[in-house]
Design a protein around this nucleic acid. Structure first.
Lengths: 151, 151
DNA sequence: CGCAGATAGTTCCCTGAAGGAACCCACAAG
DNA sequence: CTTGTGGGTTCCTTCAGGGAACTATCTGCG
């Protein structure tokens, strides 16, 4: 669809979307995170076209979000795993889940729950300030130009 | 591109992507958040096609993420504003910004900074547990099936 | 050996969404 | 009554997504 490339924009949202903004990418990462990590498993689970799946996996590996590794040499078999960069993207997915649960889950309730290791309770993520630890949402901040802003 | 609809999947990530997963949607929301809220302003700022912009705005209004309001009756002039549902999406954008800053900003550094009202410091968002307040990332949770999971 | 089966893709064609430019309409100001 | 501005709509082209078929490599089995 001759899409505009976002990778060169001076905007971290655009650059993030450039990496995982294509349809399916977040779902692929989620599946790899929960252990659905092989080509055919992903294809079955998502119902994605094999062609598009191959393209996405290649792109995500190039972007260093996933790595492709051999889990059997003979016969050669591969699976995908999250890198550190990819694991941090899962935080983004957790926030997506939170929003989807609140606004789109409907009567049935959320499809998955998280149990927090530290406290043992079923919980969801909240945004806090890295400096003072207090809650920090869209209404709690001033937006300032940073060093990498366009002139 | 005859895209697979994600809206009916039993997955909050898919349902969230159904609402804002199209290219440009997050950037439109970001701009509305920072006050770039009129059709022509958005078009200039993003370099998006007018056609696609009109489609996206219509969709986001239908999804109750934006509202279209008249700021002048004669001549009729409109601008877009975030609803409560849309404002919570900005949290998601803040997490995207955080990831983009860490992994894609390069030498120039982050294009924007957030100053937290509560403590006055420049900060970024972190994920904490809604129950105990401790940090909660992908490695700190067990994923359990919830009430809305597919059978 | 020859063949089925599993894994991991690649190739082909078709459709429909994104890009881009031009066009349109209501209204106001000069 | 022409020009300007906001806020879109129309039309055409191109390329990405969907889907199904095909390929390649190795293993195990009769």
């Amino acid at each position: 669809m001759q899409r505009t490339r976002f990778g060169d924009m001076a905007c971290s949202i655009a650059r993030t979307m450039d990496v995982i903004g294509e349809p399916w990418s977040p779902l692929i990462l989620r599946n790899v995170f929960v252990g659905i990590a092989r080509f055919d498993q992903l294809q079955d689970n998502l119902g994605i076209s094999r062609k598009v799946l191959a393209e996405r996996l290649k792109w995500l590996v190039e972007q260093d979000v996933l790595e492709r590794r051999e889990y059997s040499a003979r016969p050669p078999r591969h699976e995908y795993a999250l890198t550190a960069k990819g694991t941090e993207l899962v935080e983004l997915l957790m926030v997506m889940v939170r929003w989807g649960d609140r606004w789109t889950a409907g009567e049935a309730g959320p499809p998955v729950l998280y149990r927090h290791h530290a406290c043992g309770r079923v919980a969801h993520v909240e945004l806090h300030c890295s400096e003072c630890g207090q809650p920090m949402g869209p209404g709690d901040v001033d937006v300032l130009p940073g060093p990498g802003s366009a002139t």
